[in-house]
């Protein structure tokens, strides 16, 4: 079996989300070191607050301030923090019921070790130095001595939930790192392409040749195993003119992107057409690949100079 091809694949996206009246007030409050909950019609206070009662689905808007101190309701010791988690030294995950709240908030608890953490322990919010209106404005919780010697319990003020310059949205970045491997059929295709050969696969049932192969005939639902070399020349079956420059792509616009049926293939692949003014590209144009030194795939396709293909020869592939 040939070596499995692998490549890093990073999926990264910033989600921009609007907040609404309850979540917006809560996150604005965190920016101002105020923790808000929302009161349900049966008198419970939910922290963190939500817009709808999780039991009755009733719309709830009655914001109330709770204390920045509370009690651990359950915890878990995380000796190996992972990327993007709140602390980069060992910490406890904890659900904390803040004083004045009936539900618990998930966050990190900074403690010297698991022996220093227990359910029922008293903790308080440690605020982040820079606060922007996000859950991470709470840097973490920390142990808190609320005996009279320790300063006594914190009393919440009675904030209305109205703020100057309220936060209306968050941008939540997310990045996941994968290792991509293309599988048997595409590995064979990519390896052949490195030798400047287009190798497709034929369906044992309908006899169609797929380039690039995906390992299965989508019509018959069976594995395509017989390898067939196709091309290198082909026919433009259809095309479009690209007028907007793509990010990180060093190609002058306008240019033509086309479906190209390689000779011997039963499915068109796509590629850029060069070596001809964009407004002269047409269906039926005969093309061949242009390789650059060291490339693993053709840079683009250019006209061969042959007469155009008859429509009937490629109409099934449009």
């Amino acid at each position: 079996m040939p070596e499995v091809l692998k490549a890093p694949l990073v999926v990264e996206f910033p989600f921009t989300r609007s907040l609404g009246p309850v979540q917006g007030a809560f996150l604005t409050g965190l920016r101002e070191r105020v923790v808000l909950g929302v009161r349900t019609s049966d008198g419970r206070t939910l922290v963190p607050p939500v817009e709808y009662d999780p039991v009755t689905a009733e719309e709830i808007r009655d914001l109330v301030e709770v204390a920045p101190t509370g009690t651990v309701t359950t915890w878990a010791w995380n000796h190996a923090p992972r990327r993007d988690q709140p602390l980069d030294t060992p910490f406890a995950w904890a659900l904390v019921r803040l004083d004045g709240a009936d539900t618990a908030l998930l966050h990190a608890l900074d403690a010297p070790g698991p022996d220093a953490v227990h359910t029922g322990m008293r903790v308080r919010v440690r605020w982040a130095e820079e606060r922007v209106g996000a859950i991470t404005d709470i840097a973490c919780f920390e142990p808190y001595d609320d005996s009279p010697n320790g300063g006594g319990p914190a009393e919440p003020a009675h904030h209305t939930g109205e703020f100057e310059d309220p936060v209306t949205g968050i941008v939540a970045p997310a990045r996941l790192d994968y290792t991509y491997s293309p599988g048997r059929a595409q590995t064979a295709y990519i390896n052949a392409l490195a030798d400047r050969r287009n190798v497709g696969e034929r369906c044992p049932s309908c006899r169609k040749v797929y380039v690039p192969p995906r390992g299965a005939c989508p019509t018959c639902g069976v594995a395509t195993l017989e390898q067939v070399e196709v091309g290198p020349r082909g026919t433009v079956t259809t095309f479009c003119i690209v007028n907007i420059k793509a990010k990180n792509l060093d190609i002058e616009v306008p240019y033509v992107y086309a479906h190209i049926a390689l000779d011997g293939a039963d499915l068109a692949l796509h590629g850029r057409i060069g070596g001809i003014p964009y407004d002269q590209v047409r269906m039926g144009l005969r093309v061949e690949p242009v390789w650059t030194e060291g490339a693993r795939y053709p840079d683009h396709y250019r006209p061969t100079g042959e007469p155009d293909a008859d429509y009937d020869t490629y109409k099934e592939l449009v």
Partner: peptide, 20 residues
Amino acid sequence: PYYVAPLWPDSVALAALQAQ
């Protein structure tokens, strides 16, 4: 995505809270 995902609590951590 507002209150929890930005903290990246992984699947084992959440199950551990339940176990405790």
